[in-house]
Amino acid sequence: MTEEDVTRKRVREILTEFKDHQGALLIALLHIQYELGYTPEFAVEDASAILGFSQPEVWGVLSFYSDFKIGKQGDHFIDICVDGPCHIGGAPGVRRALEEAALDESNKFEVRAISCPGICAKAPVVAVNMRYHGDMTPDKALELAAKLD
């Protein structure tokens, strides 16, 4: 079996597991997202077949909630909160520094702007591969980024 076959088998298992659950569509898709770290495109077809929703309905849910990342993702992510307290705390500067660094080919990470994760008291915050770091400055963020390889 190829890697994709293994993933697909697992996706179908998860979908089947939640089949009789109330409100199954969102919960099953979130389960797939959080287990794999992304949502494969074939999940739409499978969710439609197994849970009995039309494909547009499945796409509707996937595109609505910000948790879902469609398709295989890169190795590393630096998420930066861009909302109110982080914004006035200096997030734009941190974001600019990270985005410039991400252009450098030797750096293998992607910068994503995210919505408030509720760590406003430690603004601005970034999350390196889902681990949060508070009281960010451009220098500290670049230091964290330099540790990734």
């Binding site: 409100g23 199954a24 569509l25 509707g60 609505f64 909630y65 910000s66 879902f68």
Partner: peptide, 25 residues
């Protein structure tokens, strides 16, 4: 415990209900 997807609008009571039902909120 419904660990659910993030969309700010789901804090609105009727949108929250749709979200619990597994739909777009």
């Amino acid at each position: 415990i419904e660990a659910t997807g993030h969309a700010y609008i789901c804090g609105e009571e009727t949108a929250l209900m749709d979200s619990v039902e597994g739909k777009r909120g």
